[in-house]
């Protein structure tokens, strides 16, 4: 789970989190008492259809403003440690 979330945890953290998460998961088990047969899962409360935007392009962000917050950049590109072939996902 920590790998999926890209978190590296110390052994102490793992131990504490496991205990806490177990307690929380035990608690949420109470939902099993609820009969949800034929209940449609609700992912949003709005009585709306998704609004559509007109296909009009706006002026882009100034490239310097785009990278000004980056920990590392070169020109107008973001820079990250070298990606090794095969790390690619998606």
């Amino acid at each position: 789970m920590a790998v999926l979330a890209r978190l590296s945890l110390t052994d102490a953290e793992v131990e504490r989190l496991s205990t806490e998460l177990e307690a929380i998961l035990d608690y949420v088990e109470t939902l099993e008492e609820v009969d949800t047969t034929d209940v449609r899962p609700m992912s949003h409360v709005l009585p709306l259809a998704t609004p559509l935007r007109e296909d009009r392009a706006a002026a882009p962000l100034d490239p310097q403003a785009a990278v000004v917050n980056a920990p590392e950049s070169a020109g107008s590109a973001f820079v990250v440690p070298r990606v090794i072939d095969g790390e690619e996902e998606g």
């Binding site: 789970m1 999926l4 989190l17 998961l25 939902l31 949800t36």
Partner: peptide, 28 residues
């Protein structure tokens, strides 16, 4: 971190239906 871990777990393969989908049903 605690909440990211819980949320990651809740959405992960094999647990989605028991937790996330169930919660959305109870939400209704």
């Amino acid at each position: 971190k605690r909440r990211i871990m819980l949320g990651t777990y809740v959405l992960s393969a094999g647990y989605y239906d028991a937790y996330y989908r169930k919660a959305q049903q109870v939400r209704a």
